[in-house]
Structures are given as C-alpha cells and as structure tokens.
Amino acid sequence: MEVRTIKVFTTVDNINLHTQVVDMSMTYGQQFGPTYLDGADVTKIKPHNSHEGKTFYVLPNDDTLRVEAFEYYHTTDPSFLGRYMSALNHTKKWKYPQVNGLTSIKWADNNCYLATALLTLQQIELKFNPPALQDAYYRARAGEAANFCALILAYCNKTVGELGDVRETMSYLFQHANLDSCKRVLNVVCKTCGQQQTTLKGVEAVMYMGTLSYEQFKKGVQIPCTCGKQATKYLVQQESPFVMMSAPPAQYELKHGTFTCASEYTGNYQCGHYKHITSKETLYCIDGALLTKSSEYKGPITDVFYKENSYTTTIK
C-alpha cells in the first residue's frame, strides 16, 4: 500500500517557510505537534488534498525554529505562539472599519479597549522592536488589523473576551517599542525636605499616572512627601515624541487643539466601556464603527496623549 502524501510549508514567522512532505494517514499533531492554519487549530486533523502548498504555523520545537521565533517575536515564552494563534482565530472574524481616516474595530468580545489602543497607536510616533509587531502594525494602518490585535493580546497575556485596560495595554506595548531616546527629568520640591531631581528613561519617561493635564504637570502637581507634608512635583525636561497622561476616570474637559487623542471610560472596574476622542479640525468621538463630532467635550476621561518633541522648564 502506497503512502499518500502532500507537500506543505511549516513556519513560526510566515517569513521562513520549511518544506514538509506530510503523510495523509496521520494527523498534523502526530507529525508536527500543535499546528495552526489561519489561526485555526488543526492539530487533530489529517492532511487533505486542499492543504497542498498551504502554510501551517507550528510551535518552535527545534533550534532553527526557536531562533526564527525569537528573532521575529522577541520572546522565548513557549506558550506565546499558541496564544497568538488562538487569538487570531477570533480577531480574523472582527470587522476593521476605516473611521475618520483611522483603522478602528467594530465592537465584539469586549474589544473596546483594543480599538482605543489601536486608534491611539496610529496617532503617536512609535516604532516597535519585534519585527512581528512592526509588520502587523503597518498592515493594521492599511486596514488589516487582525494579526496586530492578536499579537497585542498575546504580548499582554490576554484572551479574547476578557476586559482590558488601555493604560495597561499601552504599557505592555511600550515595553516592546523603541523608547531608548526618551528621557524625563522631574523635580520634587518640599518646604521641609528641599528639592530632589529624578531622571527617568524609556517607558517611565512617557507615562504618568495622577493627572490628565500635561500643562498642569509642567506647572506642578501636589504629591505627598515622605515627611508627610505636601510637596510639588513638576516637569523639568521632556525628550520624547509623545507623552501619555493618565488618571482614574473623572469628568474632564478636553479643549480642541490642546491634545492629540484621549480615552474615555464609562462604567466601573468590573464592567465598563471605552471610547476614543481625537482632536482634528474639530473633536471626534470614535466608538467602534461609530463616529460623532463636537466642538467641545466633557466626560469621564482616563488617558490623554500629547505630541511632544523637546521641553525644558522655565521655572527657576
């Protein structure tokens, strides 16, 4: 009895394709271990004539594949690729409408935090270190965002349907971005203890939790000093293409032309909904596939993004 075979390709990165001759009487799992086709788990399936010449994702289970996976995804987590594939199996079914010149995501599976993050990423200057993220990001900007969303979920250790947080998501993504040249110098002034300067680099240099107003941050924000008295913390120097200011959701007025974009969060910790506000020729609110415009805006804002380049204080 002759062994019926077909020729397929296996890959971990969709760049390096490895030619395989597979036995049609055995499952993919018996031949390769966990195997995925377009995100779908085909591990328990036997090869079919229609699979001839198709590319299958496999887990990096030998040295060659491990090197290829690390170079593309910059992670050695053995569960990463499987999590990416199972997320992709959902995100490829989502709709990605162009809204006001940006790629958004039609609401499904509690994905409003991903839509808000995706919209924000198209408006701030950011370059990702893992080629996987950078490639998928370019495709997302062009309207094909399924891979990018699935990668975000995998890097953030999230599953489809789980509630997510924009600030946490951005923080994970910033860790995989090139923020080497970003720098922030802060000064804390206390009447009792004097003053202390701190220099922050990388992710810490672009994120701040405690106030939404970048102007206020430049002037000074009140913080408790270690001595128990009130101290003032203010920005001395900022070198970065953008800054992200966050605070627990509270009524906040966004003035046209003073910011790049913002995240609105309605609801409580267990259950809520994100919308995205962007400042173009007027203010726009993007909620999944829905767009509304207004000249002014007041609502429960939790993150505001500002364009920056270089700032030095005039406070002496």
Rank of each mutant, 00 (worst) to 15 (best):
V3D: 14
I6R: 10
F9S: 14
T11V: 07
I15T: 12
L17V: 09
L17I: 09
F32N: 11
G33W: 02
D38V: 09
G39F: 09
A40H: 12
N49D: 14
N49F: 10
S50Y: 11
S50M: 12
E52T: 10
T55Q: 09
V58G: 09
V58S: 09
D62V: 06
D62F: 08
E68K: 07
A69H: 14
E71G: 09
T75W: 03
T76H: 13
S79K: 02
S79M: 15
L88C: 02
K93V: 07
W94G: 05
P97I: 12
S104H: 09
A108H: 09
D109Q: 12
Y113K: 04
T116Y: 02
T116A: 12
L118P: 04
T120N: 15
Q123R: 04
P130N: 01
P131G: 03
P131N: 01
A136C: 03
Y138K: 13
R141A: 09
A142E: 12
G143F: 03
E144P: 01
A146T: 01
A150Y: 05
Y155S: 05
Y155E: 02
K158T: 10
G161H: 05
G164Q: 01
D165K: 02
R167H: 14
S171V: 09
L173W: 02
Q175H: 12
H176A: 04
L186D: 03
L186I: 14
L186P: 01
C190N: 01
C190Q: 01
T192G: 11
T198C: 08
T199F: 11
K201D: 07
E204S: 09
A205R: 02
Y208K: 04
Y214C: 01
F217M: 07
F217R: 02
C225A: 06
T226W: 03
K233D: 03
P241A: 11
M245H: 05
M245S: 01
P249E: 03
A250Y: 09
Y252V: 10
Y252N: 03
L254G: 00
H256C: 15
F259L: 01
A262N: 01
S263F: 03
S263Q: 05
S263N: 15
E264M: 09
T266M: 11
Y269T: 15
Q270V: 10
H273S: 00
E281S: 05
K293W: 09
S294K: 09
S295Y: 05
V304H: 01
